[in-house]
């Protein structure tokens, strides 16, 4: 894939839920290695946008292409290169962290040794054999981070990734999903200052419409706060 090609490219993308429109006419390009932060009040379409990029939802209008592949037709080729971290950890509660990650490793064709490495990296090696149901919210989130980066994805889709994490955990997972990870990232945030600090590009959604789309350098926190007004 040539580097000039955008990692994520949307052209006039829309999505309905029945008769209600949850996303309308969203257009942007995100270059490889850059970070897009999506702001917007609840119900603005942030999660829908992320799920669409993760190939879990298809667009009703417009064109979506991820890592140079058009969705949904080439979804198969993209899937193994996306790390998705949503509100749900996507882990089986009765299985241990290690068992869950082993399962995902097999689905993604990743070696089992990688599981131990990732568990170590998120600081969960000592609790890896407890059922997920017995872990605290923060620990589950750490495991979810481990799951999302297990297969070394090129593109990370993070829906409020730092929710439930304590400061120590945040520093711990930063090399995996933070700016230093070197991966292309799309993340959602409700915190204008912290979100802006991470962003290369800012997208503000309100009622499914792109109210704000600009390089992070040109955006002030007040503009973001306005979205929530």
């Amino acid at each position: 894939m040539p580097d000039s090609q955008p990692a994520v490219s949307l052209r006039g993308v829309g999505r309905r839920y029945g008769e209600r429109v949850v996303l309308r006419d969203v257009t942007f390009d995100l270059a490889m290695g850059q970070t897009l932060v999506v702001f917007g009040p609840n119900g603005a379409g942030k999660t829908t946008l992320l799920r669409m990029l993760a190939t879990l939802l298809r667009a009703h209008r417009g064109e979506v292409s991820v890592l140079g592949r058009a969705l949904p037709d080439d979804g198969y080729a993209v899937r193994g290169q996306i790390g998705f971290l949503g509100h749900e950890p996507l882990l089986y509660r009765e299985l241990s962290g290690r068992e869950n990650l082993r399962f995902h490793a097999r689905l993604h064709g990743v070696l089992a040794t990688r599981v131990d490495k990732v568990l170590e990296a998120v600081g969960m090696a000592h609790r890896a054999d407890d059922p997920v149901a017995e872990c605290s919210r923060g620990m589950v989130q750490r495991l979810a981070v481990a799951r999302a980066v297990l297969h070394e994805p090129e593109l990370l889709l993070l829906d409020e990734p730092l929710a439930n994490l304590d400061p120590a955990a945040i520093t711990q997972v930063d090399p995996l999903i933070g700016a230093q990870s070197g991966r292309t990232r799309v993340l959602t945030s409700h915190d204008p200052a912290a979100g802006l600090a991470e962003a290369d590009l800012v997208l503000g959604l309100k009622g499914g419409r792109a109210e704000l789309l600009a390089p992070a350098a040109d955006v002030t926190t007040d503009q973001i706060a306005e979205l929530y007004a």
């Binding site: 190939t55 879990l56 198969y76 080729a77 899937r79 998705f84 749900e88 996507l90 882990l91 689905l107």
Partner: peptide, 17 residues
């Protein structure tokens, strides 16, 4: 039930399988 309630469907759909 486990797939539906604990995100097994999404986890599976995200994999290239």
């Amino acid at each position: 039930v486990a797939e539906h309630e604990q995100g097994g469907f999404d986890g599976f759909l995200l994999a290239p399988v």
